[in-house]
Design a protein around this nucleic acid. Structure first.
Length: 864
RNA sequence: GCGGGCGUGGUGGAACUGGUAGACGCGCCGGACUCAAAAUCCGGUUCUGGUGACAGAGUGUCGGUUCGAUUCCGACCGCCCGCACCA
C-alpha cells in the first residue's frame, strides 16, 4: 500500500481485497480443497443452490442465493462433514434461440460464451464449489441420459402420447404445461395463451398424485407455504361419481360430486361445452352449436372468466334422478363447467352452491334447501341469493332427514354403490385430483430431443439405447419462424428401428423443466458415461440436505423434481423418492428507484446520496440535478434500478458484497440493496482487519480477560445455532457484538492469549461469509494452513455460565430495580436478597408485597 | 371469495418455549484528530416532561387471559403472497 499521502507509522495497512481475493481463490483452487470424493468416510452433507440459466451475466439475486449456500457449505465442512457443493447450468431454453434470431449467432455458441462469463463471475465471488463436477444440460453427455430415462419411463408406462387440448403460447410458438401458465399468460413471454388441440408427449405425474400429496407431510424442513401451495395444486378431493340415466333414450351422463349428501336438492344437470353429449345435441341444433362456439371463444381468454356471466343452454334432454327414477332433471350446457375436471358434468344444487344458485336464479330453476345449519329452524330456512355451503342436518331429503352431512354422504354413497344401472353400480367413490399430466413436448430447437422415430407402419418407435444420444444438428437457421428441426430433412430422415423402412424423427424437444428435474442426482456422479446415475452414489448423497432458491419455483420445478425422482425410482435409477430434504426459499434483492425531473429512470450507478437538513437526497452525479427517490422494487432493467455484481466486486471486493447480502435482512425476506449498506459492510471488513492486526501484535501482560473469552465463546455458540437455521442476519449481529468486545478489550490491558483466542474465533466466525478476508487474517494471526480447512472451534460451555446473575425486579409488572444474586441461589435466598435491596425498598415505599414471583435466572416480580 | 403470512424507533430488523422491548447494523446529531479532506475514534439517538437522577407513555386498533403479553385468545383495521367457476 503506497497510495496514502501521509502514511502513519502506527496505522496498520488497509486490507486490499483486490489483491487478496484472487490470491486466495488461486490458493484454494491449487489445493483442490473443494473437490469432493464420493468414498470419503465422513458423514455427508449435500448443499445445493438452484442452478442458473446462463443468460449472460449473474445478477444480485444469484449473489444472494450463492452466498447463502456457500456459508452453509463452508460451515458444514468446518464441522467435519464431507460436503458436496456443486454448480452447473440450466442451459437449454428460448433466450438462446431468440439471440440466434436477433443476432444470427448459434444458440450453442451463445450459451457457452455466457457460461464462460458467468463461471468467471461466480469464481470471483470465492464460492467453495466443486467445479470438477460442473454440468451443462445442453451437453449431449448430459441429455443422452435424459433420453435414456425418457425411454425407460415410456417402458414403465410413465410416458404417454395423446391428443389433448393444450396451452399454446403464440409469442414463443410453443406449448406450455399447466404449471407454466400464470393468470392465463405464458410464464416467460407473458402472452395470453390459446387453447389448441395437439398430439403431445406427457409424463404421467398423475400416477403419483396421491404419493406426491401424502409425502408433503414428511417434508418438515420445507417452508409451510410451499407445502400448502403444492397441496392446493395437486388438489385432492374425495367424492362420488354418479351415473344419471338419460330419459327417453339410451345413454347416461356421469357426474362427479363431493356433495352426494345434497342430491335431493338437485335442480338441474350441467355439462361442459365440449362434452360429447353437447356435441350430439348440437348436431341437430344450430342454436346450441352457436352457444358452444361462444363458450369456446370466451373460454380461451382466461382473463374474461372473472367477469363472464354464468350462461347456459337448455338441451331439452332430461335425466332421471339416481335416487328416484320418476324425478326428471333438465340438462343444460353451461359455460362454467370444465371438461378438464372430474367428468365434465355437474349436478346443480342451487341451495348449497353459490355458482349453482346464480345459475338457477338466472334461469328460474328454483332451489330446495336440504342442509339446515345447526340451531336454525328448518321450516323457516329459505335460500334466496346466498347459498349455504356449511355443514348441518339434512332436511327435505327423504331417508336422509335428520342425518348430519357426513352421515348423509355415507348413506348416499353406500346406497348408490349397491344400486345397478345397465349392469354397473350407479355410484362409485372416487378420489379426484386437480393435477394434470405434465405435457413435455415443446416445438422448439434448443432443448433435449425426444428420442422417438415415427414410422408410417410401426407408429412411434423408441430410438435404441445404443443409438443415444439423439443429438441436435449443429447447423440450423432461424430465418423462418418456428422449429428449425421440422425443416431439417437431413436430420429428420432415418430408417425405422423396428422395420427399417424410411421414417422420420420426432421434432419436438423436451420442456427445459425436465432438464432441471434430475441435475442434482447427476451431480453425484457426473463422470458416468454409460448410465444416468451410479446407484451407490445417488442413494448415498440424496436427498439434498439443504436446497436454496427462489419461491417462484414452489410449484413448477419443485413438483416436477419430486415426480422425476419417483419415476427414477420406478425405473431403478434411484433408491430415493424425495429429492430435497431441506428447502429454503430466499427473498429477492430490491433497490430504490430514481427519476429525474423529466420522469426518466436513473440508474443507481449514476447517482449519489447526500443529506440536507437531515434528509436523504438523491443527486445526479453528472448534472447535480436533484432526483426523486421512488418506490423500492425488484431490480429490473425497465426501472434501471439494477446493480451489477461485477461493479460491486471491483470496487469493494466479493467479501463486502457477500457480507452485506447476508447482514441486512432475514434471508427469507427481500433485502434492500443500498449504497450506505455496502459502505457499512466495507467499513466492517477494514475494522476486522485492524482488530485482528492489533490482536496479533498485542503484548499486554494480562488483565481481566475473562470477559473477552466469555464474549468470544458466547458469539461462537450463538453463531452455531443461527447458521444451522440459516439466520444469517443474526449471525452477523453476534459477530458485530464480538468485534465490539474485542475492540473494547484491546484498549486496556489484555492477555496475549485471550486476545489471540478471541481474534481467532472472530476470524473463524467470519470465514464462511467472508472467506478471503478470513484467510488473510488467519495468516496475520500466524495460524497454520488455510482457515477454509480448519476445524470449527469448540465452545467452552463453562464460559457461558455466569457466576452471578443480575435479575430485573418488577413491581406489578413494571421494572423498578436490578438485583445481583448468585447463580445457584434458591428462590428463598433470591427473595430475601431482593427484599433487602436498597433500591427495591425505596421503590416499595414501605408497602409489603402480597406475592413474590421468582423465575429462576430470569426475573422477580413483586405484587403489592 | 378461499388459503397462508405480516404490522415493533427516522430506517433494516432483534427479543429463546409468556419474563429488562428496541440487540446489531444503517442513518442522523454533537465532539476529537487534520491546514483540509478521506479514514478512524469518542458520546448521543423510541416518544413526552425534567439541567438531572427520574417519572409517564409505548410493539396497527379495541378488548380478554395472566403476577407479568411484541409473544397466547377474540374482534376489527391495514399490507403482502398464493389460488381462484375444481363440482
Amino acid at each position: 500500500m503506497t497510495d496514502s499521502a501521509h502514511p502513519s507509522p502506527t496505522a496498520p495497512e488497509r486490507y486490499n481485497a483486490k489483491d487478496a481475493e484472487p490470491r486466495w481463490q488461486a490458493a484454494w483452487a491449487q489445493a483442490r480443497i473443494y473437490e469432493t470424493k464420493n468414498d470419503d468416510p465422513r458423514p455427508k452433507y449435500y448443499v445445493l443452490e438452484m442452478f442458473p440459466y446462463p443468460s449472460g451475466r449473474i445478477h444480485m439475486g444469484h449473489v444472494r442465493n450463492y452466498a447463502m449456500g456457500d456459508v452453509v457449505a463452508r460451515y458444514k465442512r468446518a464441522r467435519g462433514f464431507n460436503v458436496l457443493h456443486p454448480m452447473g447450468w440450466d442451459a437449454f431454453g428460448l433466450p438462446a434461440e431468440n439471440a440466434a434470431m436477433e443476432r444470427g449467432v448459434n444458440p450453442r455458441d451463445w450459451t457457452y460464451a455466457n457460461i464462460a462469463t458467468m463461471r468467471a463471475q461466480l469464481q470471483a465471488m470465492g464460492l467453495s464449489l466443486d467445479w470438477s463436477r460442473e454440468i451443462a444440460t445442453c451437453d449431449p453427455a448430459y441429455y443422452k441420459h435424459q433420453q435414456r430415462m425418457f425411454l425407460d419411463f415410456l417402458g414403465k408406462g410413465l410416458v404417454t402420447r395423446r391428443t389433448a387440448k393444450v396451452n399454446w403460447d403464440p409469442v414463443d410458438h410453443t406449448v406450455l404445461a399447466n404449471e407454466q401458465v400464470i393468470d392465463g399468460r405464458g410464464w416467460r413471454s407473458g402472452a395470453l395463451v390459446e387453447s389448441r388441440e395437439l398430439t403431445q408427449w406427457f409424463f404421467k405425474i398423475t400416477d403419483f398424485a396421491q404419493d406426491l400429496y401424502d409425502a408433503l407431510d414428511g417434508l418438515e424442513r420445507w417452508p409451510e407455504k410451499v407445502r400448502v401451495m403444492q397441496r392446493n395444486w395437486i388438489g385432492r378431493s374425495e367424492g362420488l361419481e354418479v351415473r344419471f340415466a338419460l330419459d327417453g333414450r339410451d345413454g347416461e351422463i356421469k357426474v362427479y360430486t363431493t356433495r352426494p349428501d345434497t342430491l335431493f336438492g338437485a335442480r338441474f344437470l350441467a355439462v361442459a361445452a365440449d362434452h360429447p353429449i353437447a356435441a350430439q345435441v348440437a348436431a341437430s341444433s344450430p342454436d346450441l352449436q352457436a352457444f358452444i362456439e361462444e363458450c369456446r371463444r370466451i373460454g380461451t381468454a382466461q382473463a374474461a372468466i372473472d367477469t363472464a356471466e354464468k350462461l347456459g343452454f337448455d338441451t331439452g334432454l332430461k335425466v332421471r334422478h339416481p335416487l328416484d327414477p320418476a324425478w326428471l332433471l333438465p340438462v343444460y350446457v353451461a359455460n362454467f363447467v370444465l371438461m378438464e375436471y372430474g367428468t365434465g358434468a355437474v349436478f346443480g344444487c342451487p341451495a348449497h352452491d353459490q355458482r349453482d344458485l346464480d345459475f338457477s336464479n338466472k334461469y328460474g330453476l328454483g332451489n330446495t334447501p336440504v342442509v339446515c345449519p345447526e340451531g336454525q329452524d328448518a321450516q323457516s330456512f329459505v335460500i334466496t341469493d346466498t347459498a349455504f355451503d356449511g355443514e348441518g342436518r339434512m332436511i327435505n331429503s327423504r331417508f336422509l332427514d335428520g342425518m348430519t352431512t357426513d352421515e348423509a354422504f355415507k348413506a348416499v354413497a353406500n346406497r348408490l354403490e349397491n344400486e345397478v344401472l345397465a349392469s354397473a353400480p350407479v355410484g362409485e367413490r372416487k378420489v379426484q385430483f386437480r393435477l394434470r399430466d405434465w405435457g413435455v413436448s415443446r416445438q422448439r430447437y434448443w432443448g433435449c430431443p425426444i428420442p422417438i422415430i415415427h414410422c408410417a407402419d410401426c407408429g412411434p418407435v423408441p430410438v435404441p439405447v445404443a443409438d443415444l444420444p439423439v443429438a441436435l444438428p449443429e447447423h440450423v437457421s432461424f430465418d423462418v419462424p418456428g422449429n428449425p428441426l421440422e425443416r431439417d430433412e437431413a436430420w429428420r430422415a432415418v430408417p425405422c428401428p423396428a422395420c427399417g423402412a424410411p421414417a422420420r424423427r420426432e421434432t419436438d424437444t423436451m420442456d427445459t423443466f425436465v432438464d432441471s428435474s434430475w441435475y442434482y442426482a447427476r451431480f453425484t456422479a457426473p463422470w458416468l458415461s454409460d448410465a444416468p446415475t451410479d446407484r451407490v452414489a445417488v442413494d448415498r448423497w440424496l436427498a439434498v440436505d439443504q436446497y436454496i432458491g427462489g419461491i417462484e419455483h414452489a410449484i413448477l420445478h419443485l413438483l416436477y423434481a419430486r415426480f422425476f425422482m419417483r419415476a427414477m425410482q420406478a425405473t431403478g435409477w434411484s433408491g430415493v423418492s424425495e429429492p430435497f430434504g431441506g428447502l429454503f426459499t430466499q427473498g429477492m434483492v430490491v433497490h430504490e428507484t430514481y427519476k429525474d425531473a423529466a420522469g426518466a429512470w436513473v440508474a443507481p450507478a449514476e447517482i449519489r446520496i447526500a443529506s440536507e437538513a437531515g434528509e436523504r437526497r438523491a443527486i445526479h452525479v453528472r448534472t447535480n440535478e436533484p432526483l426523486a427517490i421512488g418506490a423500492i422494487e425488484k431490480m429490473s432493467k425497465s426501472k434501471r434500478n439494477v446493480v451489477d455484481p461485477d461493479d460491486i466486486i471491483a470496487s469493494y471486493g466479493a467479501d463486502t458484497a457477500r457480507w452485506f447480502m447476508l447482514s441486512d435482512s432475514p434471508p427469507e425476506r427481500d433485502v434492500i440493496w443500498s449504497e450506505e449498506g455496502v459502505q457499512g459492510a466495507a467499513r466492517f471488513v477494514q475494522r476486522v482487519w485492524r482488530l485482528v492486526s492489533a490482536a496479533a501484535s498485542a503484548s499486554g501482560a494480562g488483565g481481566a480477560d475473562s470477559g473477552l473469552r466469555k464474549a468470544a465463546h458466547k458469539a461462537l455458540a450463538a453463531v452455531e445455532e443461527d447458521v444451522e437455521r440459516l439466520r444469517f442476519n443474526r449471525c452477523v449481529a453476534h459477530i458485530y457484538t464480538l468485534a465490539n468486545a474485542l475492540e473494547e478489550a484491546l484498549k486496556g490491558p489484555v492477555s496475549v492469549g485471550a486476545a489471540d483466542e478471541a481474534a481467532g474465533i472472530l476470524v473463524q466466525l467470519i470465514a464462511p461469509m467472508m472467506p478471503h478476508l478470513a484467510e488473510e487474517c488467519w495468516r496475520a494471526l500466524g495460524r497454520e494452513g488455510l482457515v477454509a480447512q480448519a476445524p470449527w472451534p469448540a465452545v467452552e460451555r463453562d464460559l457461558l455460565v455466569e457466576d452471578s446473575v443480575t435479575l430485573p425486579v418488577q413491581l406489578n409488572g413494571k421494572k423498578r430495580a436490578d438485583v445481583t444474586v448468585p447463580r445457584d441461589a434458591d428462590n428463598a435466598t433470591v427473595e430475601a436478597l431482593v427484599l433487602t435491596s436498597e433500591e427495591v425498598r425505596r421503590a416499595l415505599e414501605g408497602r409489603v408485597p402480597r406475592k413474590v414471583i421468582v423465575v429462576p435466572g430470569r426475573i422477580v416480580n413483586l405484587v403489592v
